[in-house]
Design a protein around this nucleic acid. Structure first.
Length: 577
DNA sequence: CGGTGAACGTA
DNA sequence: CGTACGTTCACCGA
């Protein structure tokens, strides 16, 4: 396979197909497929079959209000979707934030006030018909003020209305495309990539993360005790866990360890006076009094018992030993992916439980030093870009600054993320001299954030800083302004890194599918691909190739090198290489 | 019952 | 060495 497979990242204009569906839970579902001037409306299962053959024959760019809405039935039918324009993801990119209901997308695309989007009717439709913003034409999706009708959820349950609903999606997508190309050279490409990520999110939910169930249960048992048979059993285990802490504080056995105020009081009674009971505050006191050590161990075990215990296993791990949760293609800030049910915050202690199934391997790859490399791209700092030629970027930076590597690393991270004080101070001055272009970009972002001005990431995502911590406007509170500044400085780096990551993940998805591989985890700079053992080496090659291809598309001509550490393993916890 | 903050897991 | 997210718990006020 050498790049012949179509990917969602190709900028192929022209052949567009829209898919709209009636909402679930209201009797038989219908769908409409609009392609090359024709519209076919039919029961959902029939349209899914049509979509499958259209994908096979033409691989059009699918337009939908959102992947969750329309692509889910296609993903469930295992149709390998290649290209999409996701109206909701385009809206989030172009206008910022996370909210992207059809009415908002339509209004923003048409340049009419989003505040005036009609709310859905609360109870009876009779009352809605009397509202002054009610549509004049019962068959039109648009009301008298040019907004999408507020009752569209109800209105589009009528299959006769699906064609108009699909045309509204197409109209929105075309307006978004115009706005994207007017906004910047990379924005439409980012929409393609983000739309692919949204489809990937549905596949991640469908496929799940493969676990070794018995190994995972062993790891849970090590912290939470054996699986309780009854509720009394569970209470007993819990009491025993509490007792291992409370035995160190005779006379205070009634302390509720789950209540921070009581814990603080208990600690004060044994001479440990702390402002709060957070882990990093208590850590130095581990050796001062045995109750602190016992408490911190208790917290670790309690976390696994409550959040990642038997209830979690039973609720989210299917009979096929796959951990499933919902995924979103972007959060509300910089645009990272998010996941539910612990997929993004599984404690490292449970990672040995994540394992390839029979006949398969995990191809694990993580991007090395992604954020400073991204800074080199988005700032266009030629000197800093030169440092990315090294596998370890901090080595040439240290050499240029005349400091030790750890100092250089702390200085670069401090420059990107905040604190301009402390040990890194002197090296920071060196950074300003050696890489003034990169440092100036970070300073500009910080200043724009402090003033409450919006920014855009490299790929074009709008970062609104004015609405950040909405309580007061910029200029009213210096502490809040500084927080906005730090947020902005971080968002342009984290957000751009998220864009490159998603382009990479979407490319891997497209180029390894025919090898029987599935992307099963996306973790900000790390990918896990579940692949048949016999294709392990080829998948690993494709993962590395995908990084080169997506980086070149994301930053054409940039003299910046990105590196992935790729390995074929049985368990997530296995050593690299 | 819903919202908030503490706490902590991940990057 | 800052930012982001999701989950659980206790508490608060309705």
């Amino acid at each position: 396979m050498t790049g012949a497979a179509p990917t969602l990242l190709d900028m192929v204009p022209g052949d567009v197909a829209a898919l709209v569906v009636t909402p679930p839970g209201r009797g038989e579902r219908y769908a409409a497929l609009l392609h090359r001037g024709t519209c076919r409306t039919a029961p959902l299962a029939d349209v899914v079959a049509m979509a499958a053959s259209l994908e096979r024959e033409a691989a059009p760019r699918w337009v939908w209000w959102s992947a969750e809405d329309a692509a889910a039935p296609l993903v469930d039918a295992r149709i390998p979707l290649a290209r999409a324009w996701d109206v909701a993801e385009a809206h989030r990119l172009l206008h910022g934030g996370w909210s992207a209901a059809p009415g908002e997308c339509w209004a923003a695309a048409h340049g009419i006030p989003v505040e005036d989007v009609p709310s859905p009717p609360t109870d009876d439709l009779f009352e809605f018909a009397g509202r002054e913003d009610a549509p004049a034409d019962p068959d039109s999706p648009v009301d008298v003020r040019g907004h999408l009708r507020g009752d569209h959820e109800e209105w589009r349950t009528d299959p006769a209305h699906l064609e108009a609903w699909g045309r509204a999606a197409l109209e929105t997508a075309h307006l978004q495309h115009d706005r994207a190309t007017a906004t910047g050279p990379r924005v439409a490409g980012t929409v393609h990539s983000e739309s692919a990520a949204a489809v990937l999110c549905l596949e991640l939910r469908r496929d799940g993360l493969p676990l070794d169930r018995s190994r995972t249960e062993e790891l849970v048992a090590a912290s939470a005790g054996p699986r309780p048979e009854t509720e009394a059993d569970e209470r007993q285990t819990r009491r025993a866990r509490d007792e291992r802490v409370l035995r160190h504080v005779p006379g205070r056995e009634s302390t509720d360890l789950r209540n921070p105020a009581q814990v603080r009081e208990m600690l004060l009674a044994v001479g440990v006076d702390v402002p709060n009971t957070r882990k990093w505050v208590l850590e130095p006191y581990r050796t001062v009094h045995p109750v602190v050590d016992a408490l911190l161990d208790w917290r670790r075990d309690e976390r696994i018992a409550t959040t990642y215990g038997y209830r979690w296993l039973d609720a989210h791990v299917g009979p096929d030993d796959r951990l499933r949760g919902r995924w979103t293609a972007c959060d509300g800030a910089g645009g990272r992916m998010t996941a539910e049910n612990g997929l993004h915050n599984l404690p490292a202690a449970l990672r040995p439980g994540v394992a390839a199934h029979e006949g398969h391997v995990l191809v694990r790859a993580d991007l090395g030093q992604i954020e400073p490399r991204v800074l080199a791209v988005v700032s266009g700092d030629v000197a800093f870009a030169a440092a990315t030629r090294a596998d370890d970027l901090y080595a040439p930076v240290a050499q240029r600054l005349g400091v030790d590597r750890p100092v250089a690393k702390v200085a670069v991270l401090a420059a990107m993320y905040g604190q301009r004080s402390g040990a890194a101070g002197e090296a920071l001055a060196g950074l300003e001299r050696a890489y003034p272009v990169a440092m100036a970009l970070l300073d500009r972002a910080y200043d724009a954030g402090r003033r409450g001005e919006p920014l855009r990431t490299w790929g074009g995502r709008l970062i609104p800083t004015g609405r950040f911590l909405t309580s007061s406007p910029a200029g009213a509170d210096p502490a809040l302004d500084a927080a906005r500044g730090r947020f902005a400085r971080n968002a342009i780096i984290q957000g751009a890194a998220a864009e490159l990551f998603k382009a990479w993940a979407a490319t891997v998805r497209a180029t390894t599918r025919d090898l029987g591989a599935e992307v099963v985890l996306c973790l900000h700079d790390e990918l896990l691909v579940h692949a048949p053992m016999e294709h392990a080496a080829e998948v690993a090659v494709q993962v590395d190739q995908a990084l080169e291809d997506s980086a070149r598309r994301w930053a054409p001509g940039a003299p910046v090198r990105f590196v992935a550490d790729t390995s074929v393993i049985a368990r997530w916890s296995d050593a690299k290489d």
